[in-house]
C-alpha cells in the first residue's frame, strides 16, 4: 500500500466546484499530457468523482492509487499507464 500523503505528484489538476462530467473529462485530458508512470493529483468537490475517477482509471488502464478527504475537497491520485 502506498502512503498517499507522501506522494509527490507530477501535476496537480484543480476541479473544485465543477460538477459531472467535467472532473472526469479534465482528468482524462490531463493524463494524456503526462508520461507513462507519472502521477496526477486531482482536487474535486463533486461526490460523483468518488465513483467516476476510479471507474475511468479501470476502464482506461491507469492505476488508481487512492484518495484523501481534506476539509472542503478530496484529493485523487492516478498513475498513468
Amino acid at each position: 500500500m502506498v502512503d498517499l500523503s507522501s506522494i509527490k505528484a507530477d501535476e496537480v489538476l484543480d476541479c473544485k466546484g465543477l460538477s459531472c462530467p467535467m472532473p472526469m473529462l479534465k482528468t482524462k485530458k490531463a493524463l494524456q499530457k503526462l508520461q507513462s508512470g507519472q502521477i496526477l493529483e486531482v482536487w474535486s468537490t463533486d461526490p460523483g468523482s468518488k465513483n467516476d475517477i476510479p471507474n475511468m482509471c479501470k476502464k482506461e488502464g491507469h492505476e488508481f492509487l487512492g484518495m484523501i478527504d481534506e476539509p472542503g475537497y478530496t484529493r485523487y491520485f492516478v498513475k498513468k499507464k
Binding site: 484543480d14 476541479c15 473544485k16 466546484g17 473529462l25 479534465k26 468537490t45 475537497y73
Partner: peptide
C-alpha cells in the same frame, strides 16, 4: 475541453 480550462471553483 480542448480550448478552455476553467479553474478556481470552491466548496463551502
Amino acid at each position: 475541453i480542448e480550448h478552455f480550462s476553467s479553474q478556481g471553483g470552491i466548496e463551502i
